[in-house]
Structure formats: C-alpha cells, structure tokens
Computed example of a mutant assay.
Amino acid sequence: MTQMLTTKSLDALPPATTKRYEVRDQKTNGLHVRVSTTGAKVFYTMVRPNGSRKRIKIGPYPVVSLADARRKAMEIARDVELGEFDKTPDIPVETAPTLGEAIPQFIELYAKPRNKDWKRTQSVLHKFDGLKNRPIDQIKRQDVSKVLDDIIANGTPTRANRALSAIKKLMNWYVMRGDIETSPVALLRPPTPEIPRDRVLNDDEIRAIWRHSEKEGYPFGPFLKLLMMTGQRRTEVAAMRWSELNLDEGIWELPANRVKNGRLHIVPLPPQAVDILRSLHRFLDSDFVFTTTGRSAISGFGRLKERIDAAMPDGTPDWRFHDFRRTASTGMAKIGVAPHVIDAVTNHKSGVVSGVGATYNRYTYFNEKREALEQWANELMKITQKPSTTNAEETS
C-alpha cells in the first residue's frame, strides 16, 4: 500500500497479523517502511544500480526519523544516478535470496502450514536445483522453461506442470512478501495439456485386486480392501490410527489435520470393514493401523502396484490407486446413491449444495453416508464372490 507517510501515520500503523507488510511513501520514490508482527517498523529504500534492483536498509523507526529516512533515501538515489553507489560500502544492501535459500524458507513458512502434501512440493522444487545459486529476482522465464523442457524430455510431462505450479507459488509468495516486485514466471503456462482421468475399474479388475489382497496379507492386504470399500484417499487409509476408530459404533473420525480439505470427516464403517479391522493385530505402543515398524504408516505403494499389476487380467489399461475412489463413487451411483451423498462420503465439496446453502448447511448426511457405504460394501462383496470372466486368477 502507498500513502503520504507522516509521523502520526507511522505511529498508528498496527502490527502485522500473520506476516510483515509494507507501506510505500508517496513523497520519496523508493522509500518504504516494513511493519513486523511485533510492531517493529524499519525504513528501506529500493534502487536499481546498474539495472539490478536492490533493497537498502536505512534503519528502524523512530530511532531513524521520517525526515532522516527521506534524506537518506534521496542521498542513495543521488549516488545511484551519479554512478557513485558502489563507492559507499557502508550502506547495508538487502538483496533477494537465492533460490537455494528461498526453497527451504518457502517450505517452512508457507507450504508446511497450508499443505499436507508439502514434501511433494519440496521434492518437485528441487527440479530447479540448477538455479539454486541464482537470486530469485534474477531468474528469467527462459531459465525455468529450460528446466521444464528437461523434465518433459525425461518422459514425465505432467511433472513439468507440477514443477511450474510449485515455482509459481514460491515466486508469488515472495512477491506478496515484498522481497521481489514481480514474478518472473507469471506469464508461463503449463507446458503439457492434461486430460482429467475417468478410469473406473471393471468387475474383473476389482475381483483380481481383491483376491490379490488376500494373498498379500497384513498390512497391504487389509489396506487394499478398506481402500476399495470406503472410497477414501490412499494417504488417509494408509495412515489410519486406532485412536480415530470407534469399532463398537462403526465410526472412523478423520481429524481436519489429516484431510486434504482441512475439514473433520466422519466415515461410517460398514460391518465388513469393521470385521477386517477387528481381525488385525496391533503393534505394541503404536497408533498406526497399517504399519511394518510401529513407528510410521506403510509406504512402498509403487512396489505394491507392481505386484498387483502381475495379478491383473491380460491387457488391463493403466490404473492408479486414486481410481479406487472413482470406482467407489461410480459404484454407489449405479446402485442409486444420490450425488450429494456420494460427495459427502468422499469428502468432496458438493456441486449440488452450493452458495449460502453450502455455507450454513451443517447436516453431514451421516445416516445417508452409512447407508451408502453399506450398500457399496454389499455390492463389492457380490462382485468379488462372482466367478472371474478372465484368466486373471490363473496368471496371478
């Protein structure tokens, strides 16, 4: 924000709420004051010696008065115009961080508090490690485009889209903080067109995966069954805790900090799911339902998929674990479950109840969700108990 700074207006500036903010002076070009969450106010000025933008710290207010700050900002601007700026080494110059410095700061202060999948963001940002020694305000669009081209050349075009999305978020965050004026990647568009997946497993594929799950045993076998039966996300099922479960009531309560959309999610468990969970042994002093160490949830899903692929019918199109959610949603729709109930089961923001109705509707359709999941579990049992129409079992 920009305004005519006065001593009175400086004194009235409130502390920042969550992150520092800036107020630019209308009278003196480049002069601005930064206000921190503690209420501290520091004068800076922005200049461009040799075409490179630099932020120069003048000093804290009120130790440095507004008049002194304006005079110092004008002196620095004069030195820049006369080419004498580099001859004044006593001026503390604040430059933009390098990308190598920016990534961990962005992850710690922005991604971690807001994104449960921050590790994936961190991983994809390291695709730009070739630029890590470059100040972020000196990174150009063509630098980022070259990195994206290399990702595409490695045969992972959709990862290039994810990498661009991550670097855009990082740059926009630094623009918002005032560390850089503009994002160098603002005009870049995703390099690869993406088609939304609509893959739904057919009955033979469901049977093959279910029967493979019985051969897998604990922990991946029961994990696969619950993944298909509940329609919840892979990460949510894999990291299920015993403390989230009330098996007597048949309820799985997912806390907001474990859910993608950050909302408490209640999953009514069908009797078949309760039976599976009751059959499992518990690791001593561990809250994880599916674990091999007791200290962390299961992982290694790539290897699990490879084992399942070997058990699938010949010619099976590529599939992903996320397709289980779409399969469950489609299956519930086929047996007559209403769309808004399916949204409630899968914890999606409903396209049926929207606007003010969505904001004030506190009814979570608990009974309808229970009925829907019980119907889907019964349908799943019918599918898995039918004879296979392919030679999947013989090839598994």
Rank of each mutant, 00 (worst) to 15 (best):
L201G: 09
V237S: 05
E205A: 12
W173T: 15
R241H: 15
S243Q: 13
R162D: 00
F220A: 01
L245M: 11
R189G: 01
L170P: 04
P191G: 03
D204G: 13
S243A: 14
F223T: 05
L226K: 01
A166V: 00
D203R: 14
I209C: 03
R211I: 02
R199A: 13
N161S: 04
K168T: 06
L201T: 08
Y174H: 09
P184I: 10
P196C: 08
P222C: 02
I209K: 02
T182V: 12
L226Q: 02
M176E: 14
A160C: 00
L247H: 07
R189I: 05
L187R: 15
D204M: 08
S183T: 14
M229E: 14
K215V: 08
G221M: 13
R207A: 07
N202Q: 04
R189L: 12
W242I: 14
L245Q: 07
I180F: 13
V185N: 04
I195T: 15
L226R: 01
V200A: 04
Y174M: 02
R211Y: 03
Y218A: 11
A208C: 06
V185R: 04
Y174Q: 02
E236K: 07
D179A: 07
V200D: 05
P190L: 10
L245E: 10
E236V: 12
V175K: 08
G178K: 01
I167A: 00
R162T: 00
S243K: 14
H212K: 14
S165R: 01
K215E: 14
I167M: 02
D248K: 12
R207N: 08
N172V: 05
Y174I: 02
P184H: 09
V237W: 05
P190Y: 04
N202M: 02
H212R: 14
G221Q: 13
P190V: 10
T192P: 01
S183H: 11
L224N: 06
G221S: 12
A239K: 15
T230D: 12
R197K: 11
S183K: 09
L224S: 04
A238G: 08
P184A: 12
V237M: 11
W242K: 12
S213R: 07
W242L: 13
N202G: 08
A186Q: 13
D248I: 05
G217C: 09
I195E: 15
V185L: 03
W210E: 08
P191R: 01
R177V: 03
L227V: 01
A208T: 07
A163W: 00
Q232C: 15
N172E: 09
S165N: 04
K225H: 02
W210T: 06
K168E: 03
S183Q: 11
F220K: 06
N246P: 10
E236D: 14
R177K: 11
W173E: 13
M176C: 03
G231I: 05
M171E: 07
P184T: 11
M171S: 07
Y174N: 03
S165H: 00
W210L: 09
A163M: 02
R211W: 13
P190A: 13
N161Q: 06
F223M: 15
Q232L: 11
T182N: 09
T192H: 09
M228R: 07
T235D: 15
D248V: 06
M176V: 11
M240P: 05
E194G: 04
D203G: 06
